[in-house]
């Protein structure tokens, strides 16, 4: 199986490293920045494609790690070329794009796998397993938090263009919108508030969302690009009618480093990590590899990606209008 990666930003780098851990062949890269693509291609002894068509011609699977607003066009072209697709989260920038992507892949009979990697983090998978096997009963109140620094700000960083990324609520909080729905089922209403400052000395984004699930469970989602780098803190709390799950990254780190800092020595996008035999990105791509090869099920589907997108867009809309958004009405 030959895999081509679109995009050579932070996720392209992470996925390339993870593909190396699977039996797939990393064929090459296509990216806006040929410099970044060349650097990765050299590292993995792979090709740099001059254009997307050349990549599609040479691979069985496309792994789209490009900015969110570009997912739609890359997916539609890949579907037209009858290639299976792995697409970074968020699935798309708009629901119309997302629906068109699902339709195109269904019609072309190709798989569309959305990289909601949080489902593959072992603590998140284990908490889900506990809920699924009933060890804490029916979830009543779920609290999820994901807090880090704002991504670095090189010129034209697409993260900061709301039209391209959807901002922090879409790019970051979608992880926990997806996870909350995985735990507690379909979401009925969303109410959110957020702040995004332009103060150059205090750049931060912060959002809080309250989800009401169809079955009556409530979820509280916190998203922050508000901490000084290199912090990346995540937390899970699930209160069920027969027990409670608590987990905080800060309280369960097996390693803590207190090193004297070198100026500017932090990554562009902070990613959470804990030492594991297999990192969660590899677990994810291995599961996707198996699904593509043997048609085995994956724990996250394109429909899940679309549903998470809908919750995130509803949160943005709610914060904008100052009203709760009903997803049932939004669907109709």
């Amino acid at each position: 199986m030959r895999v081509g990666i679109v995009g050579a930003g932070s996720m392209g780098v992470v996925h390339a490293a993870s593909w190396q851990q699977t039996p797939a062949t990393l064929a090459g890269f296509f990216a806006e920045s040929s410099h970044d693509a060349t650097r990765l291609a050299e590292k993995y002894n792979a090709r740099v494609y001059k254009n997307y068509a050349a990549l599609l011609n040479d691979v069985d699977v496309v792994d789209i790690c490009a900015p969110t607003h570009l997912h739609h066009d890359f997916v539609l072209q890949a579907a037209a070329a009858r290639k299976h697709i792995i697409c970074e989260k968020p699935l798309a920038r708009t629901m119309a794009q997302g629906r068109a992507m699902l339709d195109a892949c269904r019609n072309a009979n190709v798989k569309l796998l959305v990289a909601h990697v949080v489902r593959f983090f072992p603590q998140y998978a284990l908490a889900k397993q506990n809920v699924a096997n009933g060890s804490i009963g029916t979830p009543a109140v779920v609290r999820l938090a994901r807090e880090s620094a704002r991504p670095k700000r090189p010129p034209n960083n697409w993260f900061f263009d709301f039209e391209k990324s959807g901002g922090m609520l879409l790019d970051l909080m979608i992880h926990d919108f997806d996870y909350a729905r995985w735990l507690a089922g379909e979401v009925e209403t969303v109410f959110a508030q957020s702040i995004a400052t332009e103060n150059p000395d205090a750049p931060l984004d912060f959002g809080l969302a309250i989800l009401k699930h169809k079955n009556g469970a409530l979820s509280h989602i916190t998203g922050a690009w508000a901490f000084p780098p290199p912090n990346f803190r995540t937390a899970i709390e699930i209160a069920g009618d027969a027990g409670l799950i608590e987990w905080k990254s800060a309280d369960t780190a097996p390693l803590e480093f207190f090193l004297h800092e070198r100026a500017g020595d932090f990554p562009d996008v902070g990613l959470p990590s804990s030492p594991l035999r297999e990192d969660p990105y590899t677990t994810q791509l291995q599961e996707f590899y198996d699904a593509l090869l043997n048609d085995t099920p994956t724990r996250v589907t394109a429909e899940d990606g679309l549903a998470a997108l809908q919750i995130a867009l509803a949160a943005i809309e709610s914060a904008r209008l100052g009203k709760p958004i009903s997803l049932a009405e939004a669907r109709a």
């Binding site: 009543a140 209403t189 109410f191 009401k212 469970a217 069920g240 009618d241």
Partner: peptide, 9 residues
């Protein structure tokens, strides 16, 4: 704004 439930207990 508030949402409440009575699943616990």
């Amino acid at each position: 704004y508030a949402q409440t439930n009575r699943i616990l207990y």
